[in-house]
């Protein structure tokens, strides 16, 4: 049994998606790592399966800088949906931005468990599983 049932990677950079998936797979942290390029799609998926625990992720790794719907918009929308979900979904921001302003802004969303800067490291991945 792996520590997490499923993880969603939300990032429009395909290379980053792939690297993150490889790193997560290597540490055997989750049974299912799903990759999304479009935050809107993730939001719709979550809304649709709010009552279906098997379809909901345990953890979301969210990029901030994305086209169409960016990470901020996702967080705004998600904060309204998360109370209605049948199981807790943890959210980490995973971004290349080291801008202090971004870091502070993430603090506005108290359900976000951490602000991680790319790339992920083995240590951090280990902590995600706990």
């Amino acid at each position: 049994m792996k520590p997490l049932h499923s993880i969603f990677i939300v990032d429009d950079d395909p290379i980053h998606q792939q690297i993150t998936q490889i790193m997560l797979d290597r540490q055997h942290i989750s049974d299912a790592v799903k990759k999304f390029s479009d935050a809107q799609e993730v939001l719709e998926h979550i809304r649709e399966h709010r009552d279906n625990a098997a379809q909901l992720p345990d953890l979301i790794l969210l990029d901030l800088n994305m086209p169409v719907m960016d990470g901020w918009e996702f967080l705004e929308a998600f904060s309204a949906v998360r109370e209605t979900l049948c199981k807790p979904v943890r959210v980490y921001v995973l971004t290349s931005s080291i801008d202090e302003k971004d870091r502070e802004r993430v603090n506005d969303f108290d359900f976000v468990e951490g602000y991680l800067t790319k790339p992920l490291t083995s240590d951090i991945i280990g902590q995600l599983g706990q």
């Binding site: 950079d13 290379i15 980053h16 690297i19 993150t20 490889i22 790193m23 290597r26 800088n65 290349s96 931005s97 080291i98 801008d99 800067t117 790319k118 790339p119 992920l120 490291t121």
Partner: peptide, 18 residues
């Protein structure tokens, strides 16, 4: 630089590692 240059460099770092 904070957004657009860091992203590929982070990718590179991670790639080196794996």
């Amino acid at each position: 630089t904070s957004h657009n240059l860091r992203a590929p460099i982070a990718n590179m770092k991670a790639l080196m590692h794996i």
